[in-house]
Amino acid sequence: MKRFTTGLVVGKFAPLHCGHERLINAALAQCETVLLLSYSVPELPGCEPEKRQRWLQLRFPQCQSLVLMPERVAQWQLPAIPQNDDPADTHRHYVATVCEQVFQQHPQAVFTGEDYGDGFAAVLSARFNQPVTHVRLQRGTQADAPSGTLIRADVHRHRALLAEEVYRDFVFRICLLGGESTGKSTLAQALAAALHTDFVAEFGREYWEAKHGELSYDDLLHIARTQVKREDAAHPAQYLVCDTSPLTTLFYTLHQFGQAPEELHQLAERPYSLIILCDTDFAFVQDGTRQGEAFRHLQQAWYERELARRRLPFIRVSGALTERVAQILAHLSTLH
């Protein structure tokens, strides 16, 4: 039997860091049910509501998590979400309303790491007409209660304060595309070295060789799934270089079979921070796995059409390997 039936943790979770996780775990240890509520007006860069909802669901699937967005609030016919700098009591009463109308529960305890929790518990007690206990988690070290503002200022420097699932959303993923024999694999390695980070090799090529060039319809979906899993399993620094993407697998599936499973179409929507299209100015090299010069141009033209149709911005790189790396580094310097 735990101390409380229902506990509440409220925060921006922008981003969800180890201090938040320590607080939520304390609530889980003492409560049968834990409610997690997050909102921020204005929203904070890099910590959009969809990301916060995903972080909470990934890290704490046993909790009831709710991230407020204006459209959701309108559907529930709630008042507008308070501004971050509104008076404390405005936020307290708003949270009480969310508990009553959305969670439809009255928490018995509210967990915080600050003194303000006493006033918070008092307002909830009055609104629910029942005692609400403030459980304040004592801080040990600075790592127990890090500053979200500090982390947002340099996420990569403070990555140790974030779970991998959270940090992953701050990695700048670079995707290399291009027809056969356009230097993607060589460029992936060279670019990763220049950026002092990791690269994800093209799984499809490995799998094609393992299957002796005989790939089934289902094999191609397996390739795309594995490519994504490898990206998610990587432990990069600020950047991650990806040699191809599920978009490439979609091309081969459509080219071979004239259709593709819906899941593969969805995987091909995977977003990247930067897409690089390698030019065909390299001489075509037949390594025994490629289909030929004409196929390379067909594939290259498909990428150009598809990127335009999807309205995905990309940069084109050409020239020798060192020139291509320099072009990418120059472009990255304009983004930061």
Rank of each mutant, 00 (worst) to 15 (best):
T5W: 01
T6L: 00
L8D: 03
V10N: 06
G11Q: 12
P15C: 00
P15R: 05
L16W: 01
C18I: 12
E21T: 09
L28Q: 04
Q30I: 06
V34Q: 09
L37Q: 00
Y39K: 08
S40C: 15
S40T: 14
E50L: 14
E50R: 10
R54T: 12
W55R: 03
Q57C: 08
P61G: 05
S65R: 04
V73C: 10
Q75I: 10
A80W: 13
A80D: 12
I81N: 11
P82C: 10
A88D: 13
H93Q: 13
Y94R: 08
Y94T: 09
Y94A: 12
Q101I: 06
F103M: 05
Q105G: 09
Q105V: 09
P107M: 01
G113F: 10
D115V: 15
Y116D: 02
D118N: 15
G119S: 06
A121L: 07
V123N: 00
A126K: 11
Q130Y: 00
P131E: 04
P131I: 02
A145Q: 15
T149M: 03
T149G: 07
T149K: 14
L150F: 06
I151A: 02
I151Q: 12
A153C: 10
R159Q: 13
L162Q: 03
E164P: 14
V166W: 03
Y167E: 07
F172K: 11
R173I: 09
R173M: 14
C175D: 01
L176W: 12
L177Q: 14
S181K: 00
G183Q: 10
T186Y: 02
T186Q: 15
L187V: 02
L187M: 08
L187G: 01
A190E: 07
A193R: 14
L195R: 04
L195E: 04
E206K: 14
D219P: 09
V228T: 00
R230E: 15
E231C: 05
A234G: 10
Q238G: 06
S245G: 13
L247V: 03
F251C: 07
H255Y: 11
L264E: 12
L267G: 01
A268Y: 12
A268Q: 04
E269R: 11
R270L: 07
Y272H: 05
Y272S: 02
S273G: 08
I275R: 15
I275H: 10
I276P: 08
I276M: 03
F282V: 09
G292L: 00
R296Q: 06
H297Y: 15
H297G: 02
Q299R: 08
Q299P: 02
E306D: 04
L307Y: 05
A308Y: 09
R309D: 12
R310H: 04
L312P: 00
S318Q: 14
L321K: 08
L321D: 02
T322M: 09
L332G: 09
T334K: 13
T334M: 08
T334P: 11
